[in-house]
Write a protein that binds this DNA or RNA. Structure first.
Length: 416
RNA sequence: GUGGGUGUAGCUCAGUCGGUAGAGCACUGGAUUGUGGCUCCAGUUGUCGAGGGUUCAAGCCCCUUCAUCCACCCCA
């Protein structure tokens, strides 16, 4: 083996790239109808941006970032997620002065230094959407409706939308206290990992897959019982609006987040088809983030979709490449020369045309036409060329007729 | 960072007790000198992941290493 790609960073080859293009195009269409505009930010940001937004003690910041110093000694980081860069750009470019409500979407590669496995890679791709400037619960429902709409549009149905509320800086500490109090009495029943979590991040214990932990936390206090009145009203409205829009969802009060900036509404689009990775998309509200990064005190909400995970769910080769319209098979060098010029002319008119460049036999050329799944084959023989005609073969019908080269383009277009 | 599985032809994989490297598919040519798919015939393709060790002899046994997949952790 000579030089290979970096571990966890994959090539997307013809045959599967069509699926990617399909998923990206549908996102542009659907998000566009909801009034979202695309934003593109650099793949690299100052390290500080991610430390301050995602949270110093999260796994992402502590051990998963691709961080390095550039030649002038600045600490830079390959973006591990999209919300922080978009927020940074929003503030830097003062987008709130252009419009009190910003609806933005992005798509592109993200980087995390993790051990690769099914549905999890070191360079992975997200399609994300963010709304900055609206606190009303209608926008929560709108964002979820858009995500649901997109999932329907691309034909992903084995998914469930789960929503939760994490409360806000006002009510979350109280809940945390109650949960710690509950876990304290059951520490022995928890797995080793969760005994560690108990001190570092007690909310994560609720998310543990170990059966002992699940049993021990069956009666654990619910975050939803500890919401302050503002958060409770907001969550109630989100649910009401979702019902009004007939968006199917379930409430999962044990859903937690890996990023510190989330408050109030959080949600995930989950599936059981991706091995141990169950989230296809996830997001939530981040009302304090813009201000904490030095911008105006504006609320925000958004989500990110894992593109690789969608591709895995769609399955390979589910989106087929478009077939060539015409394959030109030539007999002899003179015919090949004429075919070459004719092919080029047709391509200029938008006809997907192909030919052989290796002087192969007619049989071999026909085989190739068949392999490429060409709709028609034009056979240019010496005899026919003398009177300006050729044989046009319909590869599906297996029928053929003589056509004049003059009117070939019209003839083709009428048949395609 | 931790644990397990797998590395043999372009692809999917056989390979017995350690004894000269195999099949299917794909590709190329032919049967049909100017007609694809189906069929038949023929042919090409190997650093057996790499390095070392044991042995008369290693794809097979031992050690090391690399890659990859899956899982833990965490997450999209």
């Amino acid at each position: 083996m000579s030089i290979t790609a970096i571990k966890g960073m994959n090539d997307i080859l013809p045959g599967t790239v069509e699926t990617w293009q399909f998923l990206e195009q549908k996102a542009r269409e659907v998000f566009g109808t909801y009034g979202f505009a695309e934003i593109r930010t650099p793949a690299v940001e100052k390290t500080e941006l991610f430390c301050r937004s995602i949270g110093e003690t999260t796994d992402i910041v502590e051990k998963e970032m691709y961080t390095f110093n550039d030649k002038s000694g600045n600490s830079l980081t390959l973006r591990p997620e999209g919300t922080a860069p978009v927020t940074r750009s929003f503030i830097q470019n003062r987008l709130h002065t252009l419009d009190p409500v910003s609806k933005l979407y992005y798509m592109g590669p993200m980087f995390r230094y993790e051990r690769p496995q099914k549905g999890r890679y070191r360079q992975f791709h997200q399609i994300g959407a963010e709304v900055i400037g609206v606190e009303d619960a209608k926008i929560d429902a709108q964002v979820l409706a858009m995500l649901h709409h997109y999932a329907c549009e691309i034909g992903i149905d084995a998914v469930e939308l789960q929503v939760n509320s994490l409360g806000c800086p006002e009510c979350r500490p109280g809940y945390r206290k109650a949960l710690i109090g509950y876990l304290e009495k059951r520490l022995d029943a928890l797995c080793a990992e969760c005994q560690r979590r108990y001190t570092t991040n007690p909310l994560r214990v609720l998310d543990c897959k170990a059966t002992g932990c699940k049993e021990a936390t069956v009666d654990a206090p619910s975050v939803l019982d500890h919401l302050c009145s503002g958060c409770e009203i907001h969550f109630g409205q989100v649910k009401k609006h979702l019902q009004a829009l007939a968006i199917p969802f379930s409430v999962n009060d044990r859903m937690v987040r890996g990023l510190d900036y989330y408050v109030r509404t959080t949600f995930e689009l989950v599936t059981d088809q991706l091995g141990s990775q169950n989230a296809v998309a996830a997001g939530g509200r981040y009302d304090g983030l813009v201000e904490s990064l030095g911008g105006p005190a504006l609320p925000g909400i958004g989500f990110a979709i894992g593109l690789e995970r969608l591709v895995l769910m769609k399955g390979k080769d589910q989106v087929v490449a478009t077939r060539p319209d015409l394959f030109l098979a030539a007999l002899g060098e003179d015919a090949a020369e004429q075919a070459f010029v004719l092919m080029s002319k047709l391509q200029r008119s938008g006809v997907r045309a192909e030919m052989d460049y290796q002087g192969k036999s007619l049989k071999a050329q026909m085989r190739r036409a068949n392999k490429l799944n060409a709709r028609f084959t034009l056979i240019l023989g010496e005899e026919e060329l003398r009177n300006g005609s050729a044989e046009l073969k319909d590869m599906d019908q297996s029928s053929q007729c003589q056509v004049a080269l003059d009117g070939l383009e019209q003839e083709l277009l009428s048949r395609l």
